[in-house]
Design a protein around this nucleic acid. Structure first.
Lengths: 192, 192
DNA sequence: ACTACTTGCTACAACTGTGTAGCAACTAAC
DNA sequence: GTTAGTTGCTACACAGTTGTAGCAAGTAGT
């Protein structure tokens, strides 16, 4: 159920396994431990030495990914920088994490788990930022901020999963997300 | 691998199983045949009588769902109605299908399968519609139409999955999707 | 050399899921 | 009443996955 802590260069093995698991599980969420071990270039028993159960492995992946995302958000100085700058920075930073850790970030974490709490914290930061953007007149007054956040997450997801994530540079992708979130795809005069 | 066709009221059983499978698999994509049978209120062997293998069941679900989506698109008179009307209609119709058949529509169909071809046809119709919208001046000239379609799909997905899908009426949801797609959430003056 | 640590390998037990077969019972049609 | 069709149930064979244990071998530090 929990990770068995070992010594020295085992650290490296753990990282290797986590990255391989992310690679494999993002393609096939129900891939076997055997497949993960093969991708990591280690024996299946070695994986079990580090992660007692499959569940423990996945939990660790989620925690690991959520921590990286939290760092990415912190680096954008969400609460102090001018809101539009923070939004752009956070988008670029989050994309970088999301491209490499898509599986771990998309599968919902267990209630009360560490990753659950971290992700909830990120959502809270996000909501605060959008509130600031609305007060600054960047977001319309009549939009539902929860909906805005959901759209923002969906756009991040879309851009991170799309095949262009590897070959297009982060800034182009981030610009696309923020621009679409703010202005959509229509002309200003287009009316429903 | 294929569905075994039987006679009379077996038709009803098949529908029951398909709907139960959708309900169960949308919550847990790797749920067992046992769980699906239980949800359908039949014995597991009965499921196997209709669908020789698990794969056959899923394939049938995808085909079924994609046909319904194709109907929904046809009903919107994609190619003849004024483009904005068609977009709104198609959105409302598609949402109705997507809410009840989320699993079957989201999981990628096998290459060359019937559902694959149907879904490809829907994408083509969709792209034609967006091209017309661009020519009509509804969509900006500088936007990438492929990106627009991807955002549109993502918005549909978001709205159909969100908990509000059951209790909010379809027109409100469709309006939300189209409005967000066209204008985003920002004020016209907001600049990146 | 000795020790601690880690790994690969083989083997094994337990469990789960899948697909098939046979049989008794029920239903509707004729 | 007979028949065809359908279902539930039990049972079984088979595959694959998970988790554990033991042992030989390799590496690094002392």
């Amino acid at each position: 159920m929990t990770v068995r802590p070992l010594r020295s260069d085992a650290e490296r093995t753990v990282r290797t396994i986590l990255e391989a698991a992310e690679r494999v599980l993002s393609r096939n969420p129900s891939a076997s431990m055997e497949a993960i071990a093969a991708a990591a270039g280690v024996a299946r028993t070695t994986v079990h030495r580090r992660f007692a159960t499959r569940e423990a492995l996945v939990t660790t992946m989620k925690t690991w990914a959520s921590r990286q995302l939290a760092s990415a958000v912190d680096d954008a100085r969400f609460d102090t920088a001018p809101p539009l700058v923070a939004l752009y920075q956070a988008t670029a930073n989050a994309l970088q994490v999301k491209v490499s850790w898509g599986f771990s970030m998309n599968s919902a974490p267990a209630d009360g788990s560490e990753s659950d709490e971290i992700m909830a914290g990120v959502v809270a930061s996000c909501d605060r930022l959008f509130a600031r953007l609305q007060q600054a007149g960047v977001l319309r007054d009549d939009v539902d901020l929860v909906w805005v956040r959901r759209v923002y997450y969906a756009l991040l997801h879309e851009v991170a999963q799309g095949g262009d994530a590897e070959k297009t540079d982060i800034d182009t992708l981030a610009t696309r997300v923020v621009d679409t979130l703010l202005h959509g795809a229509g002309t200003p005069t287009a009316q429903l």
